[in-house]
């Protein structure tokens, strides 16, 4: 593991975070007392793997966020905010700790590597993010829509997808 320059084996205390706000080579911030890592897309899978070795063996949640209407949100120093963000919540049940990853995904190249090989449980969650935000996951085994019908147009949780009256899109329905 090349990213092990910083001591990352201890659960970070408040003092440790103030001194070394870097873990696995990515900036660390604190959000309401919760630890958040900000890896780049290139670091993303390696960081999740390194964290899995540290004990974060369970990926409880993977969420997409579309920051189209709120571009200047606070992120860590040195991180460029992009339109999309994928937020991964990892859990270490043996040491009872959680960590969160926020990965920036640019609009023009909305692709992330899949976490399926590290945490197979992200399969459905990544499909949901694909379905709702149109982010694709490289090498995902089954990247299809999961909640919306297969032939739906658009990605509903994007901020430029208007709520309101839309024509019925189901096959064969009178519209």
């Amino acid at each position: 593991m090349g990213e092990h320059e910083t001591p990352a084996d201890e659960p970070p205390t408040d003092e440790a975070r103030a001194e070394a706000p870097v873990q696995h080579g990515c900036p660390v911030t604190d959000s309401r007392g919760q630890t958040v890592l900000h890896p780049t897309r290139e670091q993303y899978v390696d960081v999740v793997k390194a964290l899995a070795d540290e004990g974060y063996g369970m990926c409880v949640d993977l969420v997409g966020v579309d920051y189209l209407l709120h571009p200047n949100r606070p992120v860590a120093d040195g991180v460029t905010p992009e339109r999309f963000e994928v937020v991964v919540n990892l859990l270490d049940i043996y040491n009872r700790r959680r960590i969160r990853l926020r990965v920036q995904v640019p609009e023009h190249d909305a692709v992330l590597p899949t976490l399926f090989d590290v945490h197979p449980g992200t399969e459905a969650m990544e499909r949901e993010v694909f379905d709702m935000f149109g982010l694709s996951f490289d090498a995902h085994p089954d990247l299809t829509r999961i909640l919306m019908p297969e032939d739906w147009d658009g990605h509903p949780l994007r901020k430029d997808y208007e709520v309101g009256a839309i024509p019925v899109q189901f096959k064969g329905a009178p519209s």
């Binding site: 409880v60 949640d61 969420v63 966020v65 579309d66 920051y67 209407l69 709120h70 949100r73 937020v87 919540n89 449980g121 459905a124 969650m125 949901e128």
Partner: peptide, 25 residues
């Protein structure tokens, strides 16, 4: 585990509200 991920932009409505549904997983 039911989880709630909330992102706020400082207004009165959540910018993003996600429920980590145990059944979904």
């Amino acid at each position: 585990e039911i989880g709630c991920y909330l992102a706020s932009d400082g207004s009165a409505v959540p910018y993003r509200m996600h429920i980590r549904a145990p059944s979904f997983v």
